[in-house]
């Protein structure tokens, strides 16, 4: 019961954060909305006994990613409220249809069964501790872990290539 209450509270927080992001005029508010959603999700992870994931969620998302976002917002200088202006009605309607439709479809599709077997959590003893996760990660998933090196290399090289403007460099642009 207590779990349910916690869940409901943070689910509401997550949704509220999401709605804030959707509607906030000021990008900074939107970022804050997203941030709260992420925290809420981290709480969910805790509820699901995925402690490592919860920790990483807080560190990477709330810590790194959102900071980066806020930084860029400041850098570009769009931290003012922006009018929605001429956003056409059809766009709004379509968005509503798509989002609600998507959600409704999913709920409808899974109205009986979302997951195989019982609806209740099958293995409450599964604990996403560092040890458990590490065993899996560095056991079966080692090669994948290593492969993510490429991704990170790309991220580094790509960011440099895009954002690094040494003085007087000509890059073929006209």
């Amino acid at each position: 019961m207590a779990e349910a209450i916690v869940f409901i509270i943070f689910a509401l927080v997550a949704i509220a954060g999401g709605l804030t992001m959707l509607t906030a005029r000021n990008p900074v508010y939107a970022a804050v909305g997203l941030l709260s959603t992420m925290f809420a999700i981290a709480i969910m992870y805790v509820l699901l006994d995925a402690h490592l994931v919860a920790a990483v969620q807080v560190i990477i998302y709330a810590g790194a990613v959102m900071t980066l976002f806020l930084f860029v917002i400041m850098l570009i200088g769009v931290d003012r409220a922006q009018a929605y202006g001429d956003r056409p009605l059809i766009q709004k309607a379509m968005t509503g249809v798509v989002a609600v439709g998507f959600f409704a479809t999913l709920v409808l599709a899974g109205r009986e069964v979302w997951v195989t077997g019982s609806d209740a959590f099958g293995t409450p003893d599964l604990n996403g501790t560092i040890e458990n996760v590490a065993k899996e990660l560095f056991g079966n998933w080692t090669i994948v872990f290593l492969a993510s090196v490429m991704l990170l290399t790309i991220a580094a090289v790509g960011t440099i290539a895009l954002a690094h403007f040494p003085s007087g460099e000509e890059d073929g642009a006209s």
């Binding site: 798509v98 998507f102 479809t105």
Partner: peptide, 9 residues
């Protein structure tokens, strides 16, 4: 997105 919804449906 619409395509995705349509495909799912």
């Amino acid at each position: 997105a619409i395509g995705a919804v349509a495909l799912v449906v």
